[in-house]
Design a protein around this nucleic acid. Structure first.
Lengths: 329, 329
DNA sequence: TTCAAGACTGCAAACAGTTGCACTAAACCT
DNA sequence: AGGTTTAGTGCAACTGTTTGCAGTCTTGAA
């Protein structure tokens, strides 16, 4: 303890509150208060303690503090796949919101496995004041049980009893189909996601409600570029001139698949994606898409967590029109 | 304390080692040992304690443990920009390596500000066993000072005294230029990065060493899509038929800029990028690029940190040939 | 049979802070 | 002047866990 094995650290001097107390001639409790309740200590004493602390290089030990206060000033963030372009903007925003209030952020990746999700929440529980869960895959029952161990807020899933941040994909999907209709497309294909996906159902219900367009549902499909690529043939065969894809990756794959069949976008087929991830913006043609407010969701989720308010919010989505949609031939 | 304000938690029962001890009729130290040194406790006692612990839902409190052991089983990871497609694979790999050894990972984003970097290391110091720093921007002096407070390993920067993980861009750049030369390109443009970038210098030196090609250096440029877009005109004017770009974003922007000028890739100009980020793989044409082993770097950095070995490693890069390069007209 | 060596387990002191309570002195109010 | 606040500080107990030391009980060997 103290002396590390292998790589020996030069100065293992860990300055504690007691060192500061001794050096500034006050009791430890006074030092403690200068940091956690400054108004309770005399201005002169306070500044003396502060300078001594500065000199000694003292920094309060948050873990030790957590032991008595019960608040760690840490938050957990659990996503399905850090490397999925959908998440990084969310993570970044969550981190920034957390930092602003002097919280640190644990980030974890479940690799799409529900079991890992529960395991991680458990493991975090004592170490964080709360966790934000993105599109959790665990069962309601499991989540409700876990909610007793640690407060959390859920993004992109309805869960009674837990604070919730939703992004209104349904609205976005309707906008997308209306956009296609407005351009003159009357037959629109919907490339759905995996079977049983909440988002996919949401999109479909909304899309079906747009008057004046005939909707051809193609699916289920893998929510990936390959999934989109594979769907190209069925799109061509169904005679649709406009397509709404489950997400941007699918849209990008689809465009490629269509190109393989000699169809170009947007001349022959118009394609709109969902999510507004970076690769879609850089794609050629630049993807028309439903922008999901991932950054806002991340920020909001940590704010809710920190303020311990239990609300359910639905964030607006919007349609970003770029180059992959045009009037039909 | 205990009772949360605002959102009241149902079961605030935090089961401690003492509860388990009482319920299983042994001393706390025995319970402690069944978890942290199982071989020291009798098999029968151990299993009794374990079942009781399980029943009560006991989980050791890592923060409390850290207080005596000095090891938090937490790691910090600091990157310049979480949302930059270069980093997520690295973060994911680091997380996975950490999890494998039962460590948790704090992730932080400096927003490209050196000050934030130092601030974050400070803030982490008591809470982690070490931090991995990606391409730090802080001064050597600042970093050396910080190294006394917490062990760290640096990715993508040489720093004496600190464990280091490098990715050999130079070698990759040479491979790229050789690839172009092999295709028959004799005049190759190099789109450099920002002035003063270590990577950029590295790339240039290596590229210059390839015999048989005339290198035209264009730069400095912003390391972004816009930077690449803006460089298109100069590429056309210099008469090069092959281009090595500072990174994939620049390459993608460049391809777009060239298209704007009526030049297509790879028919008129061959372009190779560096990094191998997802948007490059999804781009059309699919980008030929120098793959940086970001995942390996993240994983290795974490391993070095945990094992407290102070080495400096250089990871191989390799050339991934896709569709943005071809023989010149 | 005796003694030493293990194998377990308990005791209590850390670890780095926070906080309710008690105490002192000064300031305020009639 | 005497009593009552109030501000500032110290005391000590507490947070959940680890760990060196010492004690007890077996076991094995001489």
């Amino acid at each position: 303890m103290g002396t590390a094995i292998g790589c020996v650290r030069v100065s293992d001097v860990t300055v504690t509150i007691r060192d500061v107390a001794r050096a500034s001639g006050v009791h430890v409790s006074t030092v403690s208060r200068t940091f956690s309740a400054p108004h309770m200590v005399n201005a002169a004493t306070r500044s003396r303690v502060l300078t001594v602390a500065e000199e000694l290089g003292y920094r309060p030990n948050r873990a030790a503090r957590a032991l008595t206060t019960g608040r760690t000033h840490n938050l957990g963030l659990i996503v399905a796949d850090i490397a999925n372009p959908f998440f990084p903007p969310l993570i970044k925003a969550a981190h920034s919101a957390a930092r602003q209030r002097d919280y640190h952020l644990f980030v974890a990746d479940t690799d799409e496995e529900p079991a890992a999700e529960e395991e991680l929440i458990q493991a975090f529980s004592k170490q964080v004041d709360g966790v934000v869960l993105c599109s959790p895959r665990s069962s309601n029952k499991a989540l409700e049980r876990l909610a007793e161990r640690v407060p959390f807020v859920v993004i992109n899933r309805r869960l009674r009893g837990a604070a919730t941040v939703l992004m209104d994909v349904g609205h976005g999907a309707r906008l997308a189909v209306e956009h296609l209709a407005g351009l003159g497309h009357t037959r629109v294909a919907l490339i759905t996601g995996p079977a049983g996906s909440w988002t996919s159902a949401e999109i479909r219900t909304a899309a079906e409600q747009v008057p004046g367009v005939e909707l051809v549902v193609i699916g289920p499909n893998a929510p990936t570029e390959r999934g989109g690529f594979a769907a190209a043939r069925r799109v061509r065969d169904c005679g649709a001139t406009g397509v709404l894809a489950y997400n941007d990756l699918v849209a990008i794959g689809l465009i490629e698949g269509l190109a393989d069949l000699g169809l170009s976008v947007p001349q022959d087929v118009s394609v709109v994606g969902i999510d507004d991830i970076v690769p879609g913006r850089l794609n050629r043609p630049k993807l028309t898409t439903v922008a999901m407010p991932t950054a806002a969701a991340g920020r909001l989720a940590v704010d809710l967590l920190i303020q311990e308010v239990s609300a359910t919010t639905s964030l607006e989505t919007r349609l970003v029109i770029r180059d992959s949609t045009a009037a039909p031939r």
